[in-house]
């Protein structure tokens, strides 16, 4: 079983604060972390390896410091890690990112499964997973909350997907790309041995020369159909709450009911 896990290094938005005076993001001292959804993908890859043997390869595209995210994945138990970094990749939108990752994955073939988080918490697009699957012409199963059955021999998988109306059970063939939701597992912590291995490990770096079959027109900014033309801060939600006071819960409830009915939200 060869599982490839695609991860992204993101700012820890739990630490991002807004400067109330300028209404801008305060990024100073904000740590970079593995996108939380991707940690579930890593864990699921490790569980597959524990069941079937084989290996887990983690892959990321980003600036050189994204190496730290790969080391953390290795500390959790991933066997191999690849860092895609090159000025030529900078400014990639989701199309160019999926294209570049898919060309790297072709070099890592054969594989049985590709695992991604359902989306990254900075961009929130959820588009790169499906993009990779289509580039590789393999089926995609998004929003997976459980792998119910998987058999590398017969190349079959059955998963549960979390959709708005409930849970869908789907059968599919391998190789396949999964994007996973938080429900799927509880990611493990890095182990002492894992951390030691990660510290010593030399992470291979692939630049665009390492992807000779990639069309340079499809990389980075040049290969990105979309352009960000403006970034702004949404107006802060105005003002203070109207605090309701009353001697008894019933009086408070009556006051609130009056207000909500007057606001026509009920």
């Amino acid at each position: 079983m060869h599982a490839i896990v695609c991860i992204k290094q993101v700012p820890d938005t739990t630490e991002v604060r807004i400067n109330p005076e300028t209404n801008t993001l305060i990024r100073e001292g904000v740590a970079s972390i593995i996108n939380p959804f991707d940690t579930y993908a890593i864990e699921e890859g490790l569980r597959l390896k524990e069941r079937f043997g084989g290996k887990v390869t983690v892959l990321t595209m980003g600036p050189p410091q994204a190496r730290e995210a790969l080391k953390e994945a290795v500390a959790m138990g991933a066997d191999e890690a690849i860092l895609l970094t090159d000025k030529a990749f900078a400014g990639s939108d989701t199309w160019a990112t999926a294209y570049t990752l898919s060309r790297a994955i072709r070099r890592l073939a054969p594989f049985d499964i590709i695992l991604c988080g359902k989306q990254a918490i900075d961009g929130d697009t959820g588009q790169v997973g499906p993009g990779i699957a289509r580039q590789l012409q393999i089926p995609q199963l998004t929003y997976v909350s459980r792998i119910l059955e998987i058999d590398p021999e017969s190349a079959h998988i059955r998963v549960e997907r979390l959709l708005e109306e409930g849970r869908e059970i789907v059968d599919c063939s391998l190789p396949v790309l999964l994007t996973v939701v938080k429900d799927i597992n509880q990611p493990r912590y890095p182990t002492f041995m894992g951390i030691r291995r990660a510290t010593r490990m030399e992470i291979p770096v692939w630049d665009c020369q390492a992807l000779p079959e990639a069309n340079p027109e499809y990389l980075g900014l040049r290969g990105s159909p979309t352009q960000v033309v403006r970034i702004f801060h949404p107006p802060a939600r105005s003002g203070q709450a109207t605090l309701l006071t009353g001697d008894t819960p019933a009086l408070l409830a009556a006051q609130l009911a009056d207000r909500l009915l007057a606001d026509k939200v009920i």
Binding site: W95, G123, D124, G126, Q127, G131, R134, P225, T226
Partner: peptide, 23 residues
């Protein structure tokens, strides 16, 4: 931008090689 809509849009935009803005 439902689960199905995002799943489908990501696939279609990739095949068409065009830009897709999420959500």
């Amino acid at each position: 931008a439902s689960a199905r809509g995002r799943d489908l849009a990501g696939a279609v935009a990739t095949d068409l090689h065009t830009g897709l803005t999420a959500d």
